[in-house]
């Protein structure tokens, strides 16, 4: 059960985008289309998983004084590799729209944060699950925002050049497809998430209070 708790931690309780607000830059910059958000979260998953594995493997032999530079070198190498592979093998139009956000994964606080606070203290299996949890949390958050922005902002969902117009273009609120719409959409999703979390917390509290008073 402890493994499941680690996974759910990254997905729900400490969701990087919606709760602890790390790695916000791609959450705003790559959410204009669901396709972009999906490929971005794929890159983050790859880098986070590999960096957690490697750092967890070498955690006992890295001298404490140089650990931050070592982590930075490893993460930067992984990001460069992912960038090169993306450029060569995945669709070019997505690579162009993601632009420099792939390179900016290197300064994404999620990766360095998890390396610092989890991977260098736990074994490889736990680190893998932690990486999966956080990457999934990030992915779910930005894909939801992207879906919201694309559907309401342009009225159509698109994938690899084909698009499906769901809401007629005249009724689409193009605010959400623009720059400021990114901020507003993310703010609304954060508010919605915190609302749902508060409701769940309150329910748990009233249930606990009820069982406590019943057992008296």
């Amino acid at each position: 059960m402890k493994k499941l708790k680690i996974f759910l931690n990254g997905l729900i309780y400490e969701n990087p985008t919606l709760v602890i607000f790390l790695g916000m830059c791609p959450a705003l910059g790559t959410t204009n289309k669901v396709e972009n958000a999906l490929y971005m979260s794929l890159c983050v998953l790859a880098v986070l998983l590999l960096s957690n594995i490697i750092i967890s493997l070498i955690r006992k032999i890295v001298p404490n004084e140089v650990r931050i530079p070592v982590y930075i070198i490893i993460i930067a190498t992984l990001v460069s590799i992912v960038d090169m592979l993306f450029h060569a093998y995945l669709p070019y139009n997505v690579y162009q729209s993601l632009g420099s956000f792939i390179s900016l994964i290197v300064v994404n606080c999620i990766i360095l944060g998890r390396a610092e606070s989890f991977a260098n203290k736990n074994n490889v299996l736990d680190s893998i699950i932690d990486a999966l949890g956080f990457a999934c949390g990030f992915a779910v958050a930005i894909i939801v925002v992207a879906f919201f922005r694309e559907l309401i902002g342009t009225g159509a969902l698109s994938w690899a050049g084909h698009s499906l117009q769901i809401i007629p273009k005249n009724y689409a609120i193009s605010l959400f497809a623009s720059n400021s719409g990114a901020f507003i959409a993310l703010g609304l999703v954060v508010a919605l998430y915190s609302f749902v979390m508060n409701v769940v917390k309150d329910n748990k509290k009233t249930k606990a209070a009820k069982t406590a008073s019943e057992s008296k």
């Binding site: 890295v62 001298p63 004084e65 140089v66 530079p69 070592v70 070198i73 490893i74 930067a76 190498t77 460069s80 590799i81 090169m84 592979l85 450029h87 060569a88 093998y89």
Partner: peptide, 29 residues
């Protein structure tokens, strides 16, 4: 000696991996 040496080893390893990836992908790009 130990700290810079460690950093140097890590740096060279990473540089090697990077140039290997570059060798495979540069032509296709």
């Amino acid at each position: 000696i130990k700290l810079p040496l460690f950093l140097g080893v890590v740096g060279c390893l990473c540089g090697g991996v990077l140039s290997l990836t570059n060798y495979f992908t540069a032509e296709k790009i």
